[in-house]
Amino acid sequence: MTAPKPPVSIDPLKRPGPPIGFGTMVTFVIGVLFFGSLAAIGFTPDRLIEVPAGVARVLSFFWPADMAYGWDRVLPAIVESIQIAWIGTIIAAILSLPLALIGSRVLFPRLARGVKLISATARAFPEILLAIYFVPIVGLGAFAGALAIGISSVGMLTKLGAEVVDSLDFGTVEAVEAAGGSRLLALRWAVLPAVLPEIVAHWLFRFELNIRASAVLGVVGAGGVGGVLLNTLRYRHFDKAAAVLILTILVVLLIDMLSGEIRRRIIRS
């Protein structure tokens, strides 16, 4: 039997503390930036005290919500937002699928770089800025919104899709080519069946994001529920604004739940 090892002697007075230098520095820098910003936008303490009162006062006007307005006016606008998001997602899905395949670094090392550049550019534009251009081009309304959503979704879907393709086991591709199949046949029979479930799950996720995005496009006149909310708030019809908020929250929650459930099933099967 061996004697237990003597414990390593620790001097309780000399406990190794955390390296304070770095943390303190970061906190200091963030603090300076934060208080500097507060001062710069004129956010003085007396303004801060007014905020809860202002919010509470406006909230008190929200009740009771004008649900009649909600069913008549808001619900059609929300349906339009959903349609915008759907068409936008379809446009993005159709455009991004070939781009995702070409964007795979393993399959097409040369082309992938160009695709990456395209998708990075598309991702840099928030959809509402695109909508500002599409509204005068195709006219005021939902179609401009759908185009804006579609174009700005292409970037993210291409990037995620290419990552899915790259994470593939390329044994099946080699098998198709070894059996005499062309590159195109390999894509169709080896790559596509393997990546499609995950890519479709990404499409659905993007659809959820696009619903939120399409809800705000109305602000620049591109259709959907955002314009309704802006108008009700502008004319101080708070009971109607409350109807917009309640219905939007309910519909978005419902769609998130449905789409989340479908995504989980697709990934599992």
Binding site: V51, G54, V55, A215, L245, V252
Partner: peptide, 27 residues
């Protein structure tokens, strides 16, 4: 989850109405 359902611009509209136009509402 409810916080997450509303897009950023909705919050901006609400706060702009509540505390007045300007950067405070945005923050």
């Amino acid at each position: 989850n409810i916080l997450r359902t509303l897009p950023d611009l909705f919050w901006a509209m609400l706060f702009a109405t509540a505390v007045g136009f300007g950067p405070v509402a945005g923050a």
